[in-house]
């Protein structure tokens, strides 16, 4: 790999496998010998049916778990064997994660949920608040920042989750089935937001089985997954 390719490649997975409950009767090989690369500023989609290993691979790439075998390189650094606190730092500084189930804390307000990633960061409260309000405003939620989650619609909650993923200005936005619970109009709106973020230089990595997403023109790379393996990696 040339120096130019190294700079151009933000994420590289090399023969990565993930086994849950290894050695037990319920052992599952969720990711099996997967290799892929994602370019800096690119938009990549992991597509495949439920149980194909998309979420597991996405989590490994976003440093939310460690591979059982193989290695994952983020920004030129092998993160597979890093101690927990270094992994946390990379997760915090590099990735913004939008969960399939959103994983927002229900009894917090929209603003409080968005602030969560910034608590462990040495940043004054005033700056935290300014940033969170700016991100919420950019997503059209300025007027809902004090609302409890239970007072927000599904689409608004989705945007809160996006705001939380953006608040610490990560280089990569990772979204797991982002359109799973949205109607077509809201899903289109979400894709527009992601496209806009990509235009601003964010790398986007999405796991989905929704054609609306993987057939969207802004998608550059598609990795077809089945039974934990990549069947096909194509570029559009």
């Amino acid at each position: 790999m040339t120096e130019g390719e190294i700079i151009d490649t933000l994420i590289r997975a090399e023969r990565v496998s993930k086994v849950y409950s290894p050695g037990l009767p319920d052992q599952v090989r969720a990711v099996d010998d997967v290799s892929l690369t994602v370019r800096t500023g690119g938009v990549a989609v992991l597509k495949g049916p439920s149980g194909s290993g998309k979420t597991s691979l996405l989590s490994l790439i976003a440093c939310m778990g460690r591979p059982t075998e193989g290695r994952i390189v983020v920004g030129g650094k092998d993160v597979s064997k890093l101690p927990e606190r270094f992994l946390t730092r990379i997760r915090r500084e590099t990735f913004g994660f939008i969960f399939q189930q959103l994983n927002l804390i229900r009894d917090l307000s929209a603003l409080e949920n968005v602030l969560l990633p910034l608590y462990p960061v040495p940043m004054p409260f005033s700056e935290m608040r300014r940033r969170a309000e700016a991100v919420l405003a950019s997503l059209g939620l300025a007027h809902k920042s004090r609302s409890k989650l239970t007072q927000l619609s599904g689409g608004e909650q989705q945007r809160v989750a996006i705001a939380r993923a953006l608040i610490h200005e990560p280089a990569v936005i990772v979204a797991d089935e982002p359109t799973a619970h949205l109607d077509r109009a809201l899903a289109t709106e979400l894709l527009d937001i992601l496209q806009e973020l990509n235009r601003k230089g964010k790398t986007i990595l999405i796991a989905t089985h929704d054609p609306l997403v993987h057939e969207h023109p802004f998608v550059e790379q598609i990795f077809q997954m089945r039974d934990g393996r990549i069947e096909d990696g194509s570029e559009s």
Binding site: M64, E84, R92, N103, L104, L116, Y119, P120
Partner: peptide, 16 residues
């Protein structure tokens, strides 16, 4: 447990 997982996922360290 979920709340702890969320905090970890958004960048909180174990010590935090």
């Amino acid at each position: 447990r979920l709340e702890i997982g969320i905090l970890k996922a958004v960048g909180w360290d174990t010590s935090d």
